[in-house]
């Protein structure tokens, strides 16, 4: 079987990332002519009805009081025990913090490799039975790595995005098994002691327009004009690592490899050169407008539109033009 790790929302339904994992698991299972199984923590709830429609024929529910603490070690340990007992051909999970942690622990406990951030899984290339190949993202996705995955069970996390999650042939029925792992309460583990919802509102990751500034903005005060433009176009303000390192902007605004990946309709890059570590954060934008004094800056050559000029001349003129046209 191909085992998909299902993450659940607080209401028990599978997360959006889990839908993608299921789609990938179905695809892989189809190629290997194997059934699709799923594993989740907790009570069944509506999960069996949900999953049978997604082609899942086996649902394993991990149940143990220690799993409620939300620590990666317990979920990882439980997952490892399930895998050891059921011997799936592959285990697929989302690239979220929680699933990656559980998969990493499970891989370590099982003594097998883990391929993270995979975009493609190719079982048995060239008729070779044991050796699979994967393509994974490196350096946040600016490079792709083809790697040989040599393991009795293949553990992979999947990079988010791009997999169609639509309708599929339902399984005839779904068998639900409860799996109670052996977890020793005496083993030192981290425990979740608090969980609060994050402040709502428009975030960098979901904003339709991101107005982003780098070294070329020049100072913390220099961002006032970016704030104003963002307000006019219904967007959020982002920045490069130079801006966060200089203390001009909080790290929560940083776009890039070690910041946020953004997917706006429009990314306005002001005074940002376009280093690869920044580029991986904004390459998911539908379109990019670059404003830079240097026409040869990499961002200027990769953008959809470019304006050669000083941020502090171009943006005020753009704002004035928007106000003139709308009479505001």
């Amino acid at each position: 079987m191909v085992l998909a790790v299902i993450e659940r929302e607080t209401d028990g339904t599978p997360s959006a990332a889990s839908a993608e994992v299921l789609a990938a698991a179905r695809d892989l299972a189809h190629r290997l002519d194997l059934p699709v199984a799923a594993v989740a923590v907790g009570e069944a709830g509506d999960l069996p009805e949900d999953l049978v429609k997604q082609g899942v024929s086996h649902l394993h529910l991990l149940r143990h009081e220690l799993l409620a603490d939300g620590g990666p070690a317990c979920t990882g340990e439980a997952l490892a025990q399930l895998v050891a007992a059921r011997r799936p051909a592959a285990v697929l999970a989302a690239s979220t913090t929680e699933s990656t942690e559980a998969m990493a622990w499970a891989a370590a406990a099982l003594g097998v490799p883990l391929a993270t951030a995979c975009t493609e899984i190719r079982p048995r290339p060239e008729g070779c039975d044991e050796l699979w190949e994967v393509t994974r993202e490196r350096s946040g996705g600016i490079l792709l790595e083809d790697a040989a995955l040599d393991a009795p069970v293949r553990l992979c996390t999947l990079s988010a995005g791009g997999r169609p999650t639509g309708e599929t042939a339902a399984a005839a029925e779904v068998t639900v098994d409860v799996f109670v792992p052996e977890l020793d309460a005496a083993v030192p583990r981290a425990r979740r002691v608090e969980r609060a919802p994050r402040a709502a509102g428009m975030t960098l990751a979901t904003a339709p327009v991101v107005v982003s500034g780098g070294r070329g903005v020049g100072s913390a005060e220099g961002y006032a004009v970016l704030e104003e433009l963002a307000g006019l176009v219904g967007g959020a303000v982002g920045c490069s690592r130079v801006a966060t390192n200089n203390g001009w902007r909080p790290h929560a605004d940083q776009v890039g490899l070690t910041g946020t990946r953004v997917h706006p309709d429009l990314y306005i890059a002001c005074g940002i050169s376009g280093a690869t570590q920044h580029w991986v954060g904004c390459m998911g934008a539908r379109s990019i407008l670059a404003v830079n004094t240097d026409p040869e800056a990499p961002m200027m050559r990769r953008a959809t539109w470019s304006v050669v000029g000083d941020v502090h001349e171009v943006l005020p003129a753009v704002i004035a033009e928007i106000r003139r046209r709308s009479g505001r």
């Binding site: 990769r302 470019s306 304006v307 171009v314 003129a317 753009v318």
Partner: peptide, 12 residues
Amino acid sequence: TVELGRGAAAAP
């Protein structure tokens, strides 16, 4: 890439 212009003149 489409160059929209130079400096403030590119605003429209």
